[in-house]
Amino acid sequence: MQGVVKVNSALNMRSGPGSNYGVIGTLRNNDKVEIIKEVDGWYEIRFNGKVGYASKSYITIVN
Rank of each mutant, 00 (worst) to 15 (best):
M1I: 13
N48K: 13
A10D: 14
Y43Q: 01
R14M: 15
K56G: 07
F47C: 04
E34C: 04
T26S: 10
G18Y: 02
D40N: 13
D31S: 06
S15F: 06
K56T: 10
E34S: 05
Y21G: 03
V33G: 01
S19G: 11
V51I: 12
G41M: 10
V23D: 04
S9W: 11
I35G: 01
V23R: 06
K56F: 04
Y53G: 00
D31I: 04
G3V: 04
K6H: 10
Y43K: 01
Y43H: 02
N20V: 07
Q2N: 12
A54P: 00
I36T: 07
S15A: 12
I61Q: 06
S57P: 12
M1H: 14
I59Y: 01
K32A: 11
S55W: 10
E38D: 11
F47R: 05
R46F: 15
N30T: 08
N63C: 06
Q2P: 09
N48I: 07
E34Y: 07
V5N: 01
K50L: 14
V62T: 12
G22N: 13
P17D: 01
K37N: 12
G18Q: 02
K6S: 12
N30E: 12
W42D: 02
V51T: 13
R46N: 15
G49A: 08
S57Q: 12
G18F: 02
R14S: 05
V7D: 05
V51W: 10
D40F: 08
L27P: 01
A54R: 00
V4L: 10
F47W: 07
N63R: 04
V39M: 10
G41N: 08
Y21N: 04
T60F: 14
E34V: 05
V5W: 00
V39A: 07
P17K: 02
V7K: 09
S55G: 11
E34F: 06
S15V: 09
I45N: 00
W42M: 03
I45S: 01
I61W: 04
K37F: 08
R14V: 10
G52V: 03
N63Y: 03
A10N: 11
N20F: 11
R14E: 02
G3Y: 02
N30C: 05
M1L: 11
N12V: 12
G16Q: 03
V5P: 02
W42N: 02
A10S: 13
T60W: 12
K32C: 05
N63E: 14
S15Y: 07
S55T: 11
R14W: 13
K50A: 15
F47P: 01
V7E: 04
V7C: 05
G41H: 07
W42E: 01
A10Y: 12
I61A: 09
E38V: 07
G18P: 00
T26L: 10
R28W: 15
G52M: 03
V23N: 05
R46E: 15
V39Q: 09
G3M: 03
I59L: 05
N30D: 15
